[in-house]
């Protein structure tokens, strides 16, 4: 994403009313297959939640710094020391399917974004 304007991307969307398209988009991002009825119900519920936030937004927070953490901790670091891993069998014990080589096996994924 070298050219993308990082600054232009915000953590949250604005407080405007959620449209049906917004709900469909969020459902897609969460990979939820929703029925028409569920979509309609959630549109109402999500907008209700946003309305509560809109009320919170009327409060004067000028002297309160933005908070992403409620626990007053900082700089919790671990020394770079190796600890034992678990066994391959243990690691694979929840796998839907495993290969003879000791891999997790999942349905073919091609194309996706592929992280880092």
């Amino acid at each position: 994403m070298v050219h993308s304007g990082l600054a232009s991307v915000r953590y949250h969307r604005g407080m405007a009313n959620l449209t049906r398209a917004d709900v469909e988009h969020v459902a897609f991002l969460a990979r939820l297959g929703l029925t028409e009825a569920e979509m309609a119900r959630l549109e109402g519920q999500l907008n209700h939640i946003l309305e509560q936030y809109a009320i919170l937004q009327t409060l004067d927070t000028e002297h309160i710094p933005p908070t992403a953490q409620t626990i007053e901790l900082a700089n919790i670091l671990r020394e770079d020391v190796v600890q034992p891993s678990i066994s391959v069998d243990e690691a694979l014990s929840n796998a839907p399917e495993r290969s003879a080589s000791g891999h997790f096996v999942v349905p073919a994924i091609l194309g996706g974004e592929g992280g880092a």
Partner: peptide
């Protein structure tokens, strides 16, 4: 991330994951 290998397994396409 983990490492993915895409290959045929028993006649179907599968993805193998090494974490």
């Amino acid at each position: 991330t983990g490492r993915l290998i895409h290959q045929e397994m028993a006649g179907r396409r599968a993805s193998l994951i090494d974490f």
